[in-house]
Design a protein around this nucleic acid. Structure first.
Lengths: 347, 347
DNA sequence: CTGTTAGCGCTTTCAA
DNA sequence: TTGAAAGCGCTAACAG
């Protein structure tokens, strides 16, 4: 009477047609239990179901079983090309288990994040994967984790004991600093992303540590990017130029903490006619598609997003099957292209 | 006894604590019906709910109401940078209505597509948005549409009467041909994507029609791309070089039907030392982020994916609210950059 | 091998 | 203003 269930064929309808009890139909149609049913009945049931166009109602099944075969996937910003492959990886790992991702976007807002977690739990997702965690979100994530498994991926959450599938950002930062040192650079600088996002904090740390170790002078730009996007790269680049008094005061090598910010920085440099890599070397992070085609082809650190996503998805599936969680940390790879070269003084 | 409902606070628990009947709690907590409840009871209920950490079970609610507040979003390939903004747009439009997208990937496989539709209907999504439609999928989509609203977006489905939110690919193709003609090109060629995907078929049509109209010679490459990706662009470019007997036989202008294929073509051309745009002009389609940074900055047609997605999401919401569907068709814009120039003969 | 019964958590009549 | 009862579609436990 209330809602119009359009395709409204239920177990009862099938049962009536075949002349058996609904639970017999339920058994006959469930591969795991169809053995309990006489072969002939099973056949008749299957046939009737087919004929009526019966489609199981997973909502009803979920209510009964407590499982929805859905996993909440929380990302900060779907527009960020870095998260797409993560989602892709998660989705493909979930798919083999018959699980579908339900997606939500925090927009990097803590309050929204909290509302999203609540909403997802309300929907009774079987687990949550988040690639949106910032430092401040740790508590709400851990509290959600008391209800369903929560897997942290993409952005590390250093202090937390939640299962994590990430990438060694610290080592990535170190590699960049070493790369600069090997090319002969002595005065370098980072264009940093928001430091309450684990990736950027760790890249910073790794980079700075190696600078100290190898005696490189790190010019510290006191502003950091609010969001890891092209525009922020431009803004930081301009800020740096201000701080050092123009192109000639620039360090000889710049580490933009992601490719988008590197692209922004590059635009500003192009605009001012500052040659890359002749005047300054520039390195990005992530190895987004097509950064090998920009001019100059960007030296960057490859972030294996797809693999990270897949591993996160696999981990969730395991967790749901009751197996133990084992954190995963994938290795960065420095991809050396044409945007880095020896410093201008030695040329 | 069966499943462990971890956060297991139900309406009953709240009711018991307050000392009222569950249906009273239900009413008190539903803003739409809380007027039916004495203010004081309402307050006590809300307080108790809060204290117990009550969270409504949307699954149970869905079973009862027939609505899940989810929409199935079907895409061909999450790895394709072109679909991401569409999903983004859809998600943000759905969000204001409290609806969450459930995502599935066809991998451009008709059988998978069919299985996905079935699965989504099983989950009782309130509607389906597809950005994955190929010609062959029309029938199954229309049959799904007899059960829930189905909106076609991203990839047009020309023959269908389903509501569509798309972009004028035909006009986009025409614009490219005109652009070539205006620059003085007389001999041109398309690197085409799969023609059973509406976008590519229509771009082809538009382009060829204008060529005929303006008397341009269109070299027809008989192979088309299987998928709109970089590698296929490379393959088609090589095939074309074969067909015309090397770089010197090349038309003076090439229309790769998307940016990724353009990037692939460009790689082959670079490899052979064929200068763009001096020897051949090259145009892509979509205006992906960063194509303005490649060398040379790519002339392309802007596809407003985000807006398309948003419009599709808005349309779904309207449909679910019982309003009428109005198709949407957004306009292409030619973005002229450095990869196109007058033909080599006239320089 | 199959039917019966109960119930997942909620909303929705209908009464009181 | 609140309570009682029924039921959304399915599965699980227990009989038979």
């Amino acid at each position: 009477m209330n809602n119009a269930r359009f395709s409204g064929v239920t177990l009862n309808d099938v049962a009536r047609l075949v002349g058996v009890h609904p639970s017999t139909v339920s058994r006959a149609l469930d591969p795991a239990r169809s053995g309990l049913v006489k072969e002939e009945t099973r056949r008749r049931v299957v046939e009737a179901a087919q004929r009526l166009g019966y489609r199981p109602d997973m909502i009803a099944r979920s209510l009964q079983s407590g499982r929805t075969a859905t996993v909440g996937v929380v990302v900060a910003d779907l527009g960020n090309m870095f998260v797409t492959p993560i989602i892709h990886g998660i989705a493909s790992a979930l798919e083999v288990a018959g699980i579908m991702p339900v997606i939500a976007e925090t927009q990097d807002d803590h309050v929204r994040f909290s509302a999203i977690l609540d909403h997802l739990l309300s929907r009774r997702v079987d687990a949550i994967v988040t690639a949106a965690a910032r430092e401040a979100d740790q508590a709400i994530l851990e509290s959600a984790a008391r209800i369903v498994p929560v897997v942290v991926t993409g952005r590390p959450l250093p202090g937390s004991s939640l299962p994590q599938v990430i990438h060694d950002d610290r080592k990535g930062g170190e590699m960049v600093a070493r790369h600069f040192a090997e090319l002969g650079h002595r005065r370098v600088c980072q264009l940093r992303g928001p430091l309450d996002v684990g990736n950027f904090a760790q890249r910073s740390e790794g980079f700075s540590r190696v600078c100290r170790e190898l005696g490189l002078e790190e010019v510290v730009l006191d502003v950091t990017g609010d969001r890891p996007v092209i525009e922020e790269g431009e803004r930081l680049m301009r800020a740096l130029l201000d701080q050092v008094g123009g192109p000639d005061g620039l360090p000889t090598a710049l580490f933009a903490q992601n490719d988008l910010m590197a692209a922004g920085a590059l635009e500003v440099l192009n605009e001012l006619g500052v040659a890359v890599p002749e005047h300054v070397s520039l390195v990005g992070y992530n190895d987004l598609p097509m950064v090998d085609l920009i001019d100059p082809p960007l030296t960057t650190v490859r972030y294996p997003s797809l693999e990270v996503g897949k591993a996160a998805g696999d981990l969730v599936v395991k967790l749901l099957e009751g197996e133990r969680a084992e954190n995963v940390c994938l290795e960065p790879v420095l991809v050396s292209r044409k945007s880095t070269a020896p410093p201008r003084s030695t040329q």
